[in-house]
Write a protein that binds this DNA or RNA. Structure first.
Lengths: 139, 139
DNA sequence: AAGCTACTTAGACAATCGTCAAAACAGCGC
DNA sequence: GCGCTGTTTTGACGATTGTCTAAGTAGCTT
């Protein structure tokens, strides 16, 4: 099998690649968008998968073979393979077999969705620290 | 070797608030940093908690009481309370009781850690040749 | 104080997750 | 072909998670 591309269909209003929704504190996340992003987040919410993703993304040449990854962990090969499958199913990485080894690379569009979700709000004049006070007088 | 594996959890060396580590594809994530970020990500890797966080962060006044949040879900109050506790334990939100109601607000420093981790990949050609000096606006 | 509302804690349950050992699959070299 | 190495699949196991009901705590109003 070759590089997998997850359907991840029906993003609400994502006309742009690498974006699903507005930053988390900009506007309430819709039910569908939340579900979609949760799938992505579940895939990275594991220390092993986080390190795998990071090792793949920062590896020279932009890709890494499984043999490069396994030694860094105290886990069996099937477990590493399982984690890679989770990342691949989520659309975070792609894979391809070339001869003996299988290579993995990051799919930046998907990673960028996460970055966009937690993008800092640079919008001035809004809260972002402690609650104002009991005086809730909106402008 | 420097203190790469500190027994006390405390984060590697983040003098910078709202930042834990370099972006995920910049350099391999350390074991401790990955564990720390995974805790944060697990807290957010749920559609209900994602929406809660978003509803709180985007609520007028910068805070929301539980009564504002419960109606949006088809879940019992204890379940909502449980999810809020998970978010609060992770340091993503703060809470305070004022009279009858309990108010929640976002802690942006923690959310920014997630944003920094998935910061967009800029130059796909050059990696790890710079010591990752991202400077987040200190609020 | 008694009753009411808002919210949290405690305990239980099925479902999912992370891990492993064993087996299977895919290429390469002899 | 046969054996060897690299990677994935299968099946199983305990641990964790999301949800509920029931009961508890905190504050207001009478």
């Amino acid at each position: 099998m070759t590089a997998t591309t997850l359907p991840l269909a029906r993003g609400s209003q994502d006309a742009q690649a690498g974006t699903c929704c507005a930053p988390i504190a900009r506007r309430p996340l819709g039910e569908g968008d939340a579900a979609e992003m949760a799938v992505l987040l579940k895939a990275v919410a594991d220390p092993v998968r986080l390190r795998l993703l990071s090792m793949i993304g920062s590896h020279a040449g932009g890709e890494a073979c499984v043999c490069d990854l396994t030694d860094a962990f105290d886990l069996t090969a099937p477990t590493i393979s399982h984690h890679l499958k989770v990342l691949r199913t989520a659309g975070l990485i792609g894979s391809e077999r070339r001869g003996t080894w299988v290579y993995y690379w990051i799919i930046p569009e998907t990673v960028n969705k996460l970055g966009a979700l937690f993008a800092p709000l640079t919008e001035p004049g809004s809260r972002s620290d402690r609650p104002a006070d009991l005086t809730v007088t909106p402008a």
